[in-house]
Amino acid sequence: MRDNLTQFANEIGLSFELDVINFDSLEQNCYSLPFFRTNENEAVVVNFPIWCSSNQPSALPSLLRFIKQLSPKIVVSLDQGCDRSDLPFPQHILHAFQSHVNLLESLDAVNATTDAVNKIERFLLQPRIESTVLGRLRAPEKMPNWKTIFASVGFYPVTFSNFTETQAECVVKRTPARGFHVEKRQALLVLCWQRRELMSASAWRC
């Protein structure tokens, strides 16, 4: 990923640097930014998958305040539909399970190899399912929807441009399998397969 982004930045004449932060390695309520220093000629962009806080749902407000300290130009959030801590525990787990089923069935549609599917199950789906269940056990009470938490911390949604939507559609059309498409739902871009939601992306500013 780093190489692809760096190459793209070079092609359009931008200097680029990627920093990856493992939130699990940080102490909750003690987030700080000792290693981030930007100047007026730099722009910070944050990619924040919602599921990165599923292990500790109650930490989401602190994580967002941590991100806000960066003064990012834009925050792109990815949601697989699993993190529904605003639902009662049984519905939350069933919702997460169905989301993973949809993903696995979409992999069958693209004729993914058995080895690839096994790796996705082992290194992606199993850890996420465990994280979702353990996180909900740590915080059994319902919480506000993650979008509500974003707003409460001071972020507001930004609508994707028509160009961004067109680019997303072009990428999906390159997929040889049928059934995949992109839907625009208010400020969201949603990747669907057979009308089932696989992933949604949203952009935020503060």
Score class of each variant (00 low, 15 high):
130 E>D: 06
77 S>Q: 14
94 L>Q: 09
73 K>G: 06
57 P>F: 10
112 A>C: 11
66 F>Q: 06
71 S>A: 11
89 F>T: 14
79 D>K: 03
90 P>Y: 03
120 I>Y: 02
54 S>R: 14
43 A>H: 15
50 I>N: 09
101 V>F: 03
127 P>V: 00
123 F>A: 14
65 R>V: 10
38 T>C: 04
84 R>N: 13
42 E>G: 02
53 S>A: 13
131 S>P: 01
69 Q>C: 07
110 V>N: 10
69 Q>H: 10
104 L>F: 02
70 L>K: 01
64 L>M: 08
111 N>C: 04
98 Q>P: 04
41 N>D: 11
118 N>L: 03
119 K>R: 08
51 W>Y: 12
127 P>E: 04
65 R>A: 12
102 N>I: 10
61 P>E: 15
72 P>H: 02
134 L>P: 01
123 F>M: 01
78 L>T: 15
83 D>Q: 14
45 V>H: 09
114 T>M: 13
108 D>A: 08
103 L>G: 08
95 H>W: 07
117 V>D: 10
127 P>F: 00
122 R>M: 13
82 C>G: 13
63 L>G: 14
98 Q>N: 12
108 D>C: 07
101 V>Y: 06
87 L>A: 10
82 C>H: 10
47 N>I: 13
40 E>S: 06
49 P>A: 14
131 S>A: 04
77 S>W: 04
99 S>M: 08
46 V>S: 06
59 A>I: 11
73 K>V: 02
87 L>W: 03
86 D>C: 10
68 K>W: 05
124 L>T: 15
96 A>Q: 01
126 Q>S: 08
51 W>T: 14
58 S>D: 15
135 G>T: 00
59 A>Q: 12
85 S>T: 13
82 C>L: 10
131 S>L: 00
54 S>P: 12
77 S>M: 09
122 R>V: 02
106 S>G: 03
91 Q>M: 07
64 L>G: 06
54 S>E: 15
46 V>H: 01
132 T>M: 05
116 A>Y: 09
101 V>E: 08
129 I>W: 04
84 R>F: 05
62 S>L: 10
88 P>G: 01
105 E>N: 06
103 L>C: 09
115 D>T: 11
100 H>W: 11
92 H>A: 13
53 S>W: 15
80 Q>T: 15
55 N>L: 14
133 V>L: 00
131 S>K: 02
104 L>H: 14
114 T>A: 14
131 S>V: 04
83 D>I: 09
82 C>Q: 15
134 L>Y: 05
117 V>R: 07
64 L>Y: 09
46 V>W: 02
86 D>W: 06
87 L>E: 13
69 Q>R: 09
76 V>P: 03
122 R>C: 05
103 L>Y: 11
59 A>H: 11
42 E>M: 01
133 V>Q: 01
60 L>H: 12
89 F>A: 13
113 T>Y: 03
73 K>I: 03
89 F>Y: 12
84 R>Y: 10
121 E>L: 05
68 K>V: 07
129 I>Y: 03
111 N>F: 08
74 I>R: 06
94 L>N: 15
74 I>C: 07
88 P>H: 04
75 V>E: 04
46 V>M: 02
99 S>E: 07
84 R>V: 01
76 V>G: 09
126 Q>D: 07
97 F>E: 14
